[in-house]
Design a protein around this nucleic acid. Sequence first.
DNA 1: TTGAAAGCGCTAACAG
DNA 2: CTGTTAGCGCTTTCAA
Lengths: 336, 336
Amino acid sequence: VASGGIRAVAEAADVSVGTVSHYLNGTSPVSAAKSARIQAAIDSLGFVRNNAGRQLRLGRSSTIGYIAPDVSNPFFTTLAEGVERRARDAGLSVFLANSMGDSSREDSYLALFEEYRVRGMIVASAGEIEPRLAAVRSRGTPSVLMGQPASSPDQPSVSVDDALGGRLAAEHLIGRGRGRIAFVGGPLTRSQVRNRLEGASAAVRESPGVTLEVVDVPERTISAGHAVATALLERPAARRPDAVFAVNDLLAIGIVQTLVAGGLRVPQEVAIVGYDDIEYAENAIVPLSSVRPPQESLGSAALDLLLAVAERPAAPVDTHLVFAPRLVERRSSTGD
Amino acid sequence: VASGGIRAVAEAADVSVGTVSHYLNGTSPVSAAKSARIQAAIDSLGFVRNNAGRQLRLGRSSTIGYIAPDVSNPFFTTLAEGVERRARDAGLSVFLANSMGDSSREDSYLALFEEYRVRGMIVASAGEIEPRLAAVRSRGTPSVLMGQPASSPDQPSVSVDDALGGRLAAEHLIGRGRGRIAFVGGPLTRSQVRNRLEGASAAVRESPGVTLEVVDVPERTISAGHAVATALLERPAARRPDAVFAVNDLLAIGIVQTLVAGGLRVPQEVAIVGYDDIEYAENAIVPLSSVRPPQESLGSAALDLLLAVAERPAAPVDTHLVFAPRLVERRSSTGD
DNA sequence: TTGAAAGCGCTAACAG
DNA sequence: CTGTTAGCGCTTTCAA
């Protein structure tokens, strides 16, 4: 059964509370005899340091908050691992919160972390969150926006060069001789989607004779991919694209599955490139070529940036980090 | 920029700290005039309630901790959603921690949540964690073990009847006329794996003429499934099983993919049943039959149980909840 | 090395 | 309705 705090320990060990604190934190040397007595008291009392008291006194916590829109997307999990690893090195802990893409949940976790006085937050959001982060920042809690470049210079962010990613995908397909490319993705209100399309578009523009068709989809799931591919199969062969660039891997996987099931050969008749390089990409029926953001680096970079701005709020460092993705070539686009 | 606490607000609004506290918590009515002044002060000062002070005073927090071994497994995420939904109804928040299957991380989050004095924890662990939970419990923090039935009567747990799940899968395959079943999974040190096998085994034992082969695998991933299926394809047709029961869906998906790619017809030549019914199961090349635990209920039941034992530590309630899974039939086992 | 004591921000009991 | 006040458990000067 739980018992008193540091005071009870002090009494049981017949020392002062200050000494117990020093023993606990190594703030100042404690004699061997007293150390032993203190430890014995801790064990027999089942003492656990109360973080509320500690944090109240210290004025700050050593926890950072990470808000992800969709914990079930492997992409965000990989990021979280990078964040955690680096946090651990810095002696910090990470609390995860799952906003499920819902902005009211996002808000309530933002508020919760603020009340907990976390050292800072890392926020991956699908929506318009900068104003909220600005408010939080003005009250003293720093944050790093993850996944999209911040528009305000005061808001640190870590993101991926999606236009470059789109360009890499398109250039690769064009380089393999494809001339009728379909871009599958949406909605274009998302900057990530828009930028990937723009990059692909630029590459196509520079290649005479190559066309780019846009297939807008509301969701980026495997089933959405099935639907798109079903429609593609119904077209006469001449009007079908000979290459597909899907805005994420789930879509791409759905497309590949349905095309193959429908008798089309991938990549001979239709080559496919996805985006994110999630674990399932490598293990799809036809291993999927994919644009790969440097997921591990993103997470640790976000934490480093957060620490940097937390130390010196008037940040002289460059606070808008953009990482370059690279293309991972697999059979879905190179196996012919 | 952040500023003082409740006292600064009181001064700015020209009221007492008690009144501010009452305003904040609705503990006692506050006149309209003062309410307005207080709110104005809060806004202009950017005041945010300090949880450390609050919690120190209250003596307990309204947060619960959830430790998952693998946030990227959709199964645990679905559980987490159930937990969160119910927590929200009860006015509680949930902090997620990702142990990545590593028991030292598990330990450090356990300790962290304990220092934070969470109302309780929900712990999904792959390993031997009961002794640790017992220690934590003896110091005053209640917990619910998720995914495996606790062996101690004092440790509340929420789990799935895996033996029943195994039985359902096997009976279904036998009922469809299959006689040579392969159980693919491992390691048998995991109780979940062992129980699923036992259930299947019992069903086979009751069906004369039916055989059950065990294919032990160290991992339960898509690639492990690929490896198993590759080996299966190399066997002469007569020595191949006519049905496969895979201990989870990732394995099953890998197996289906490789078999189909190898020219075998699923389910005509080999029928397949998986376990967990993750989202990808429904969207596999051949939609996968799968044993489905009641994921939504599991999460909310765990939270309810936690609250129940937190209220009355000498629990008269039944603290070992076991849920029955059901079989979801899809084409991989019924499409012939 | 050790002890004594102040005070972090907040809530709730009590008195008005 | 509102103000005063006593701690919640901890760290950290400051002296000894």
